[in-house]
């Protein structure tokens, strides 16, 4: 099978974040760049699929030069080759343009069976790109797949479980298709040392922003810019919610125990009634 994985690099949002001087983005100065966590599940799922059914895993990524670290990580985990759409300024465009660009490169890779990608990226948190790539490629997608139940390479179909509000569904989808991955779908592996060594020698194709045939994509190069974006971010703020931090503790040690328990429960209810007025 040929399995593609769309991966992104993102800022580690575990960290404290700060608005940049321009006021329309987050300051990335001191931030760590990591593989989007949801894409880690996608890479893992692709590698496990390859281990079961044979074939190859191709990474497709878009972004500036630093994205190479994320690509290498995916290759070190066990992917076989990668395509990097390398350029600045993609962060300023919208997911519509990103989806088109990625789909455009995928079309050049020939036939494939499956595409995995994360359900969303943890900075923008939009969750559109995967679904939009599927649309551009004219293949079906199944989003938020909690479990790939079965892949039948002869019948060219996959069976996936996905969670919905109030239950779950199992769907059957013909290949090729695109699957978006939530967390907890699997346990992403760490790259081993030999894996990291091997990754350096794996084939990597670079596509420059000027190598792209915009006519073929059906939209102008100016769409890949802040001005051309169908939706653009004009400002961003980091709201500070002041919390009251009224914490009830025990007298001798932090934990409330024994006879203190009833009193603490009483006190909390009083706070919720009189201070917060929520019950």
């Amino acid at each position: 099978m040929k399995i593609l994985v769309i991966v992104s690099q993102t800022q580690d949002t575990e960290a404290k974040i700060q608005v940049s001087a321009s006021g329309d983005s987050i300051d990335t100065g001191d931030m760590k760049w990591i593989m989007n966590p949801y894409d880690e599940f996608a890479v893992e799922e692709a590698i496990q699929t390859k281990e079961k059914h044979g074939g190859e895993v191709v990474i497709v990524a878009i972004g500036p030069g630093r994205v190479i670290d994320t690509i290498r990580q995916a290759l070190a985990m066990g992917a076989d080759s990668a395509v990097h759409i390398n350029g600045e300024g993609f962060a300023e465009t919208d997911s519509y343009a990103i989806g088109k660009l990625i789909a455009g490169e995928i079309k050049k890779l020939g036939e494939f069976d499956l595409i995995f990608t994360g359900m969303k990226i943890i900075d923008e948190e939009s969750g559109q790109v995967g679904v939009q790539v599927a649309e551009e490629l004219g293949i079906p997608h199944v989003s938020l797949v909690s479990k790939v139940v079965e892949i039948n390479t002869d019948a060219k179909k996959a069976v996936c479980q996905k969670e919905i509000d109030g239950g779950h569904v199992v769907v059957e989808v013909p290949l090729p298709c695109l699957i978006t991955c939530p967390d907890a779908m699997n346990e992403p592996r760490y790259a081993s040392l030999p894996g990291i060594m091997k990754a350096k020698k794996k084939p990597l194709t670079e596509v420059g922003i000027d190598d792209i045939n915009y006519d073929e994509l059906g939209f102008g190069k100016d769409a890949v810019s802040k001005e051309g974006a169908r939706v653009k971010t004009i400002s961003i703020e980091v709201p500070q919610i002041e919390r009251k931090l009224k914490i009830i503790k025990g007298d001798d040690e932090p934990m409330v125990k024994g006879e203190e328990v009833a009193k603490a429960a009483e006190e909390l209810i009083k706070l919720l009634r009189e201070d917060a007025k929520v019950i």
Binding site: T13, I26, D123, E124, T233, S235, I236, V238, P239
Partner: peptide
Amino acid sequence: SHSSKAIQKQVFH
């Protein structure tokens, strides 16, 4: 956005 730590204002073209 950003793990819900930030609020973006976005405008359509």
